[in-house]
Design a protein around this nucleic acid. Structure first.
Lengths: 213, 213
DNA sequence: TAGATTGTTAATCGATTAACAATC
DNA sequence: TAGATTGTTAATCGATTAACAATC
């Protein structure tokens, strides 16, 4: 309660999971939960739950009772989504993948606001995607100079992704969600929050299956 | 060389990256590489490279010289792909995503062999996907009883994924690659090799961006 | 009061990094 | 021989788990 203990990356990565689970408790009308119960449901330990909660703020746990679901949710919402100020986000690449992801950003995720979408194909320019007009990629610099987006979601072929991400860093973009073929990464200057290479994962799985205990 | 030291999951997850990088060295005609150089190129430390190599077998490093690229590659290939016996794999769900992934399994990844594909839609049954005839999902049990696949790749909606994965465990499937909407996971009984929830990752990224140093 | 559960400190565990003798 | 680099042991670092007094 008095040691704010900045949250480490492993802790941060668990927060959305707490958030989703607590939301489901709230829907079921449950007001209070102990670290032991929460841990059992989420497949972790009560110790870890309490340590995690120590990092995120004033959780107001009550000995003998547990934690207030509502209080936890409001703390997690503040951390994960900020207080109303959604992160201005642009989409690069409006093909099949781009269309699917744009819908995802605007519906299933809070905390982000799609403010523009870009594509190389002139034939796509002017069309709508999730309520946004597609612009030509050449407008990227002028648009960013004016609107200062914070996050870019890349849905372009791998080669294109490398070229464009350099430009985006120069333009002051801080966060990246990169879908290039079967390489997924979420990053932030110098910190890779998540990184999955589909081929690599399949190779690792193969290794495990062949070399079982 | 004399301590085989079973590879831990973090080590296993790095092996495909070594493999891919060593392949590119081989293409450039480079025969030998030191742990220091390899580490620099891959963004890790020479210590870690040497520790990792200690776990994977007889790497035959030569003091003063470095490691043989060819030797490392043959060791890694043996571990990651087995010795010719590709893992028999089935695909569940032959929609857009299933089609894309089936092509990926058969072309970009070694070590797997697609032996069947299943779908719920009668209209899809009999069509071809990456050279395999689509079967109806009702044939799953009889097919598995006869052919004993080891890996299942799920490309179905999330609800369907939960139902079918129970059936698959009962049928003796050991490895899973699960694409259900924006939830990706690669798992193996009791071990999650990789697990990414798109929404969760975006939330974590938002946290980092809002709470920078 | 008695039972349950928190907050927090200490112990454990495992992975990464450093160090260095051996040796090509 | 001299410089470079391995193999391996020891040190460090960080995250997870255990323990327990405080207290609802």
């Amino acid at each position: 309660m008095n040691t704010p203990a900045k949250a480490s990356l492993p802790v941060i990565k668990r927060l959305p999971k707490y958030y989703r689970y607590l939301r489901s408790l709230q829907e079921d009308g449950i007001n209070s939960i102990s670290s032991r119960e929460l841990a059992a449901q989420m497949g972790t330990t009560a110790s870890q739950v309490r340590q995690d909660f120590n990092c995120i703020g004033d959780v107001n746990g009550r000995q003998g009772i547990g934690y207030s679901v509502e209080n936890l949710l409001s703390i997690l919402e503040g951390l994960l989504f900020g207080n109303g100020d959604r992160l201005p986000t642009i989409l690069i690449g409006c093909g099949r993948l781009g269309k699917a992801v744009s819908r995802f950003i605007t519906t299933d995720t809070n905390g982000y606001r799609l403010i523009a979408a870009f594509d190389v194909a002139q034939s796509e320019v002017g069309k709508e995607i999730s309520g946004i007009q597609i612009r030509h990629i050449d407008e990227l610099e002028s648009f960013c100079a004016e609107h200062h987006p914070k996050v870019a979601v890349l849905c372009v072929p791998r080669d294109g992704a490398e070229q464009v991400s350099g430009r985006l860093v120069d333009l002051g973009i801080e966060g990246f969600w990169n879908f290039s073929h079967y390489d997924l990464s979420v990053s932030y200057p110098d910190v890779v929050v998540e990184n999955v290479h589909l081929g690599d994962s399949l190779m690792s799985l193969g290794y495990r299956l062949r070399n079982q205990d």
